[in-house]
Amino acid sequence: MIELKDINKIYQVNKYNKVVALKGINLSIKEGSVVVLKGASGSGKSTILSLIAALGKPTSGEVVVDSVHISKLTDNFASAFRSKNIGIVFQKYNLISSLSVKENIILPLIPSNPDALELEKKLQKVLEMFEIVDKKEILVKNLSGGQQQRVAIARAYIDNPKIIIADEPTANLDEKLSLRFIEILRGLKQENKTIIVATHDPLFFGLDFVDEEIEIKDGHLV
């Protein structure tokens, strides 16, 4: 269960200017559900995702994931929590372009220093699952947008997190590739993953496997 309680988030742009990104957000997301956060650019969707992923802290309020008050975790505990529980697919994928597909995908496993066989097994599984086995040694900068996205999903999925977060995952994809991504999400839903997608892509609206669509406007839940 993910709970956001009275969340306010203000970004201090500089000494004199600040941006209010979220105002009084209260939100509950059940385990195993698929939630689509929809809204225009700048509405606050990405901020909600980053708070759930413990990438940032709210200005006020609390974020609780499976009874863990993640908004109160220190940086290292937040990283450890993220590593164990959350897989993130960023809008621009945030892959390290000079690394190979394999090197990018195994990044979340490195801190836990796993056994080589275990790592290879996990890697092979995601490479097959997301159909990028033949791209294993290729530098990600040489891949197409769709292939890069699959690498990003593979990276988010490799450590088998309970929660998968995707921020505008189809923003850089054509319709065909976007539909393919939606099918991937459908598969992940069957594995009882909690999936939260922030998007303004209409392809995500009204999908049969989506449990809830939440609209956000100017930092408020509509």
């Binding site: 290292n76 990283s79 450890a80 590593s83 164990k84 993130i88």
Partner: peptide
Amino acid sequence: ILKAVGFT
């Protein structure tokens, strides 16, 4: 990116 994927 490293932090986001779980590096402390």
